[in-house]
Write a protein that binds this DNA or RNA. Structure first.
Length: 277
DNA sequence: ACTAAAGCCTGGCTGC
DNA sequence: TGCAGCCAGGCTTTAG
């Protein structure tokens, strides 16, 4: 159920735990996980392939192999990896399994079957539909306040819907979008094109602050190799988010009650006083 | 081109 | 307690 900071943590964890390892055998257990590949191709290409590094683009994890191959993985809501020691039972909902030379297995599990894999040639990565359409990374040179202003100006949708559109801004999901809007004191229901230039600049800064802080927290997290799902928070859930999932609770800034509305089929949370339309 | 709504799945929680 | 209905941090596809 990860957004950019969680995906980043999963990528870094995989880098740490399995980079340099060689796949002894790979099995696509649920073929629908990787619709662009056949289970046979999956097994054939990955057998003997060495994991040379693990990266991230948007919410996609990129597992790079020698032989010029890359495995795109999207966790969607419930995808996760598990590195299993010898003799450990296979977790429930395992949809792909990689046996590693020298011992151990890497399992991809996904309770809700929303996750996605695609084995591709590294040289075609940028041309793949999944990657090509993505907006600039939030911490790249391309993601400036000017860029964001342009995107918002041209949209007829409401602010939060644009923030969730990965072709406009990458990495935000429902939670960090809500938190970013709160920090920027911007209303999720406001029309994107109506935002003042000043507020766009605040929103741009808020997105980087929210994602940056979460990513930094993730970098310090202790990760269980058997449960690589990007979770990094080990504190008291109360107070974890400023507005997300806090309907009826006091706004941390002004004590007004947080409101929840349904927007594009998802919950949006905001402070009606701090985040006026 | 753009946007809105339905659809993909399973499981946990809520309210009757 | 049993169960229907709702909800879940994502994205694609279809329809307009």
């Amino acid at each position: 159920m990860p957004e950019l900071p969680e995906v980043e943590l999963v990528a870094r964890s995989l880098e740490r735990f399995v980079s340099g390892r060689v796949v002894a055998s790979a099995k696509l257990i649920r073929a629908g996980l990787a619709p662009a590949n056949t289970p046979r191709e999956f097994a054939r290409v990955l057998r003997g392939a060495k994991i040379t590094g693990v990266g991230r683009r948007g919410k996609f994890i990129l597992i790079n192999f020698d032989k010029g191959r890359v495995l795109l993985t999207h966790l969607r809501m419930t995808g996760r990896f598990a590195l299993l020691g010898e003799g450990r039972p296979l977790p429930a909902h395992t949809h792909a399994l990689f046996r590693l030379e020298g011992g151990g297995r890497l399992a991809f599990t996904d309770q809700r079957h929303f996750g996605f894999m695609r084995l591709a040639r590294a040289d075609e990565l940028e041309s793949l539909g999944e990657i090509r359409k993505l907006a600039p990374e939030p911490f790249s040179e391309g993601f400036t306040a000017d860029y964001l202003a342009g995107v918002l100006e041209r949209s007829r949708r409401r602010l939060k819907e644009v923030l969730l559109d990965q072709t406009k801004v990458t990495g935000l999901g429902n939670i960090y979008a809500a938190e970013s809007l709160f920090l920027a004191r911007a209303n999720p229901l406001a029309f994107a094109s109506g935002l003042s230039r000043r507020r766009v600049a605040r929103l741009h800064a808020a997105i980087q602050k929210v994602l940056g802080e979460a990513t930094a927290q993730g970098a310090k997290a202790k990760v269980d190799p058997e449960n690589i799902d990007g979770s990094y928070f080990d504190g008291d859930e109360e107070g974890r988010w400023r507005v997300y999932d806090r309907e009826g609770r006091p706004c941390p800034a002004c004590r007004a009650r947080i409101v929840r509305v349904t927007q594009a089929g998802r919950s949006s949370y905001f402070c009606p006083r701090c985040q006026r339309v």
